[in-house]
Amino acid sequence: MTTFRAALLALAAAALATTASAQDYRAPRTSFGQPDLQGVWTNAAITGLERPAMFKSLTIPEAEAKAFEARRAAMRAAQDRPSDPNAGAPPVASDPGGYNAAWTDPGTTLGRIAGEVRTSWIVEPADGKLPYSAEGRRLLQTTLDKARNGFDGPESRPLGERCILGFGSTAGPPMLNVLYNNHYEIVQTPDYVTIVVEMNHDARVIRLKDRAHVPAHIRPWMGDSVGWWEGDTLVVETTNFNPGEVLRPYFAATIYISEDARVTERFTRIADGQILYEFTVDDPKVFTQTWKAQMPLNAAKGPVYEYACHEGNYSLPGILAGARLAEKEGRQAESVDLTE
């Protein structure tokens, strides 16, 4: 047997053993008998929702993942210390890095689920891309154009600017990772599960006993979530999204999900330090098919920090003052590209 073939067999055996271990794992129980999902978790990773063109498959070998992560670490080190003659080298343990390194927490590694490296969270469609319909892309573009040029009043600015919901879709659902504030604290009672989101201190309250959705005219932020247990898996169904949150802006990962979408999430603890988070988005108004994704929620160290948004923030008054000055001078205010 060649060394290369032996290595491949060893990798395959390790993957099978990891999968079997995840399947055999039994989550601890709360005092009232539910699988215990409580604690602080993070989805920080350099894996994103859609698969980049450089990756041709959902999973890649560990060696390829390590090489990619090392390149990303070198790039970030160079950005944090541009005047350092040694810029490009990964930071040493005693070096905290620059401001961005201390403030942001986008993660330094690709996501791994039960030891398997993932290149995208989307698992269906197989190409790892959002399956927008022509109408869906039109809705996305129209909403983006409106947001880019919405300088007339605070109500037309994105929700993150207005401190109503977190940047991008951190609260969701679905809950996606962004540049920072990727922590979640889960608290359970017999009748409710609450997910406290670090970004903008959003709190999702999921009803377990009353599973009837609110009337269609009631459209709360983050939708209306009800849940139930299927074995050790918490299943959460969310409908009744607010029309104001159809645009989830996060640079190139900006997505559009209509107010009529149905999002189904599944939370399964597969190890002491990991929850498998799966979600399905059913939104025929925007997409050609239902799409599905999987993401790890990994145990985080320490509590969730306090999040403050508008305190000392002069950006919105500055934006509006600039728009009023542009009107006075008879010119158009410049648009902002939310996808860059």
Rank of each mutant, 00 (worst) to 15 (best):
T143K: 15
E311V: 00
T280I: 01
A300V: 04
P35C: 09
A102H: 13
A78W: 11
I257L: 01
S225M: 08
S133P: 13
R266N: 14
H183I: 07
S31C: 08
L338H: 14
G322M: 00
A14I: 03
I60S: 08
I257Y: 00
R262G: 06
P90C: 01
R148M: 10
N181R: 09
G168L: 00
D152M: 08
S21A: 12
N298E: 06
G33L: 03
W291G: 03
A78M: 03
T142A: 09
G97F: 00
V92C: 14
P249K: 02
P215V: 02
S335H: 06
K328H: 14
P296E: 07
G107Y: 02
L234A: 03
C309F: 00
F267C: 15
F267A: 12
E124C: 03
Y132M: 01
T109G: 14
R71A: 11
V281M: 02
A171V: 02
T170D: 14
A67N: 01
S335P: 01
A89Q: 14
V187S: 03
N43K: 10
G98H: 12
E161Q: 15
F4G: 05
Q79D: 08
V178A: 03
S57W: 00
G318D: 07
V123M: 14
S315V: 09
V236F: 02
E340D: 01
E69I: 00
S335A: 10
G33R: 03
V178D: 15
I186R: 04
A300D: 11
L176G: 05
P154D: 10
T288E: 12
P96K: 08
S169G: 09
G111K: 08
V196A: 07
T268A: 02
A10C: 06
R71L: 06
Y305R: 10
D272S: 05
R204E: 12
E265Q: 09
M1Q: 12
G166S: 03
K285V: 07
R118M: 04
V235K: 07
F151G: 10
S21Y: 01
P106K: 11
S120C: 11
R204F: 15
A102N: 14
Y132I: 04
G39H: 13
S120I: 02
R266V: 00
D191S: 07
T280S: 08
W229Y: 03
G111A: 15
H217A: 04
T42S: 14
Q294I: 04
E69S: 03
A65M: 05
